[in-house]
């Protein structure tokens, strides 16, 4: 399944970022599937922005975490994550510090475990790192322990983006998930309609 920038914008809508107007960050890469809204993404070249702490490394780490927690059948993760995170950070600046600190925490952990930052781990190591850190086994808490903050700011942020969006929820047969204003027709339709 191919994720699109439109999917990221839909995910942002669910995440309470109703309007992206006024966001100044440039589009990370080209794309023709936007819906004409004021699309935004945090560019990999845009690491020195002063208004938030999420730069290229943090974005690359989020993409790497997504590769570990998203199903393998999903394509287009890079663009999806960058667009989504761009909207989230610009729409709610309070997330930026938490995301950056969680990335630092995760990197420190994998430096100790593998001698490398998270983005430089192999696919298997990325999944293993999250499990060894018990990120899969804790409740998310923005003020909690290291694994809880990684779960909240990185893993659950990305899982929410995917599975609260119509495309992500459709992987399980729900094209109009809670939080998405998908109209009042689909609830009447059977699975094959």
């Amino acid at each position: 399944m191919q994720l699109s920038r439109r999917d990221a914008l839909a995910a942002l809508s669910v995440a309470g970022v109703g309007s992206l107007a006024g966001c100044g960050a440039p589009i990370a890469s080209g794309g023709s599937d936007g819906d004409g809204a004021a699309e935004t993404a945090v560019s990999t070249e845009d690491s020195d922005r002063s208004d938030d702490a999420v730069g290229s490394h943090e974005l690359a780490t989020l993409v790497a975490v997504a590769s570990a927690v998203y199903p393998s059948s999903v394509d287009g993760v890079d663009d999806f994550v960058r667009t989504y995170v761009g909207g989230r950070i610009d729409g709610d600046g309070t997330n930026a510090g938490g995301v950056a600190e969680a990335v630092t925490t995760l990197d420190e952990y994998t430096e100790g475990l593998y001698g490398a930052e998270y983005v430089d781990l192999s696919s298997d190591e990325r999944a293993e790192a999250l499990a060894v850190m018990s990120v899969d086994d804790v409740d998310p808490d923005p003020h909690g322990t290291d694994p809880q903050r990684v779960r909240h700011y990185l893993v659950n942020e990305l899982l929410f983006a995917l599975y609260a969006s119509p495309t992500g929820a459709s992987l399980a047969g729900l094209e109009n998930p809670p939080g998405h204003p998908g109209g009042v027709q689909s609830y009447r339709e059977g699975p094959d309609e």
Binding site: L159, Y163, A164, A169, L171, A172, L174, P177, P178, G179
Partner: peptide, 9 residues
């Protein structure tokens, strides 16, 4: 919903 499961999985 799918997200409910994902966030606590």
């Amino acid at each position: 919903a799918p997200a409910d499961i994902a966030l606590t999985a």
